[in-house]
Design a protein around this nucleic acid. Structure first.
Lengths: 183, 183
DNA sequence: GACGGGATCGCCGGGATAATTA
DNA sequence: TCTAATTATCCCGGCGATCCCG
């Protein structure tokens, strides 16, 4: 840990970007600067270190896309466990996980729009599309992304959706499971 | 000037973005965050203590630190029991308790602004902000502080708010409970 | 009166589970 | 018909702000 000195105004600006009570300065700054979560720890429980390496490779080679644009890592680096744990319910975590996935895979992310239910859409580029595909689907925007998800489903289904998203983005089964279990 | 604590990796990242010798942490961060140069003055010369290495002890811990900067005790020393008892209703006590907390934690106090309801703000730096976030929220200024609180809520909710404030300021659960029970 | 406090009641969001369809 | 898959209704807990009381 290091200490840096900053002016009042900047301090206020940073503090005002706190996303959950007790969030550390590092966590806030990383978000503002768009730097991933600290690589070493912070991931607390589960998440094996090796997964990180494997995933990095997987990601880059993933299907037809031009780029994966992210040099150093898997989604797991983009997820702040503290922040996740902080969420009220499954919906908050669900959105946070999807936001992290979007950050890492923004290029291919639109492929998730193919994941859908029998007659409802699950993902789309607008609220209206989702709303039109079913009734009271409770669409929510995936934070910091142009995509929307349906939110009216039980937790089991949300997990299935995450599983499908993980597969669509080219993760191996082990990682897919880990992503699913974040929720 | 304020001090914040950040992890090594982030520190390196910031330092590596220095654009001229002697550039201050604030200046670098403003650029990275894309925030304009400080409005007021302060720009003056270069002679700021830049990135300070190990400002160590004096520094107020940034995140969930147990209390801070006050050598001889916790909030409890800053609360005058008689004055509390003398208040007409819960609102008076509520404000008094918050004022005491502000006195002890003025540095981090702004983090309480993150405590909020479903759609109302609970704390803010101005009456207007609170008023705008809901209707008849009855904002009151926390005495001798630049912060405001919402006052239209039942006692139970005021207690919950105190509980959250205690947590946000890093008190342990026992102290949090004691703070809550002051009301 | 009128003013401030805050209990109470209505509304909203989450998501388990009942209903529906393949 | 029976089962599996999917939808979306509806109950519950939590929050807001109206409105009653001191």
């Amino acid at each position: 840990m290091k200490n840096i000195e900053i002016d009042e105004e900047l301090y206020q600006h940073i503090a005002s970007n706190t996303q959950y009570i007790g969030e550390s300065a590092s966590s806030i700054l990383r978000r503002l600067i768009k730097l991933p979560t600290e690589s070493t720890a912070d991931l607390v429980v589960s998440a094996e270190p090796k997964i990180v390496e494997e995933t990095a490779k997987e990601v880059v080679e993933t299907q037809n896309s031009p780029v994966a644009l992210d040099t150093n890592g898997s989604v797991f680096n983009y997820i702040n466990k503290e922040e996740l744990a902080m969420q009220r319910g499954a919906v908050g975590r669900f959105l946070l996980i999807l936001a992290a996935l979007y950050r890492v895979h923004n290029q291919q992310f639109s492929t998730v729009c193919q994941i859908r239910g029998r007659d409802r859409l699950y993902f789309a580029a607008s609220e209206a599309e989702l709303a039109a595909s079913g009734s009271s689907t409770k669409p929510r925007q995936i934070p910091d992304s142009p995509f929307w998800v349906i939110t009216n489903s039980n937790t089991t289904r949300k997990k299935m959706m995450l599983t499908e998203v993980g597969r669509a983005l080219g993760y191996n089964e082990q990682d897919v499971e880990d992503i699913r279990d974040l929720l």
